[in-house]
Every structure is written in structure tokens, then in C-alpha cells.
Amino acid sequence: MMDDLDRRLLDEFQRGFPLDPRPYAAIAGRLGCTEGEVLERLSRLKAEGAVARVGATFRPHRVGSSTLAAMAVPEERLEGVAALVDGFEEVNHNYQRAHRLNLWFVVTAPARERVEGVMAAISRATGLEVQEFPLVRAHRLDLGFPLWN
């Protein structure tokens, strides 16, 4: 079971992680516990699946090219089309959403030409239109969000 200390560990260090040679000691100082306790808890939370990793998320568009794309796939073809889309290593997110446009995915590649090539290939293979929704401006990147309080 999670307690208050677990929740604070998950909530207060989603960004601005200490760039101190001993970051877990710095965290322990802020939470009023020991470095060993922080490490033990994070290891447990990771084993339980609550923590994916202590690491980074990257800003889109800084390296290579990416775009959001969507398709209106007939319900009975959804599984097959989704599998085809998943098969492209350039596709890194692919979701079914409740809408006429029911399949949404992100295509990322080193160059714009390849992004366009992947969308064209998906369209050719399925006979369905692939609509593109390129980024115009990011107001908020994935900065995490508060889980409690």
C-alpha cells in the first residue's frame, strides 16, 4: 500500500529532479527521511509499476520530424489497420479514440520525407485517408501532472 511518503515521491519530483551527485540524499532532505529509504521506496514503486523510470521525456521536433495523424477506420477493420500502423517502427503512439476519427497515431522519423512516406504507405495499404495534424505551437509539453491533493 502507498503512504504519504510514496505519494510525495511520485508527485514532487516529476521534474526538476536534483542535479546533485547524490540526488536521493537531496530528496531525502526535502522529505525528512533517509537516502536509503528513498532508494528503497523508488525501487519498490518501480517493481510495482507505479514508477516507469527516473529519466527524461524529450521535446518533439528538436531532433528529427514528427506529426500527429488520424484515420476514420470502419469498426470491423480497426484491429487489422491498427496492427498495420503499429508495424511501422516510425509510429511510436497509436490509440483508438471514441470518435468518427477513431485511430490516432504519431509518426516520428529523422526526416520529414520519411514521415510523409509512412503516412502515404498507410493510406495506400488501407485505401483510407490519413489526415495530418502537424504541431503549430506547443503551450505545454509533457510536464507531468499532480496526482493527489
Binding site: 515521491l9 511520485l10 519530483f13 516529476q14 521534474r15 526538476g16 529532479f17 542535479l19 523508488l42 510495482e48 509499476g49 507505479a50 514508477v51 516507469a52 523510470r53 527516473v54 529519466g55 527524461a56 521525456t57 524529450f58 521535446r59 528538436r62 531532433v63 479514440r97 490516432w104 509539453l141 509533457d142 510536464l143 507531468g144 496526482l147
Partner: peptide
């Protein structure tokens, strides 16, 4: 790591939580 964060190449550096595992199973665009 400090440089990557300052230049914006890294949007977030820290504890990356799995929202699904924490019970945040619903989301909408």
C-alpha cells in the same frame, strides 16, 4: 543533463510515473 533541460531538448527530467498503474486509467484528447 542541465544543458539538455535548459535548451529544452529535454522537456522533463525526473520521476516518470505510470498513470495507468496508479489508477489514472481514463483520459481524453
Amino acid at each position: 543533463i542541465a544543458r539538455l533541460t535548459e535548451t529544452g531538448a529535454v522537456s522533463r527530467f525526473g520521476v516518470i510515473v505510470d498513470h495507468q498503474a496508479l489508477g489514472y486509467t481514463s483520459n481524453a484528447m
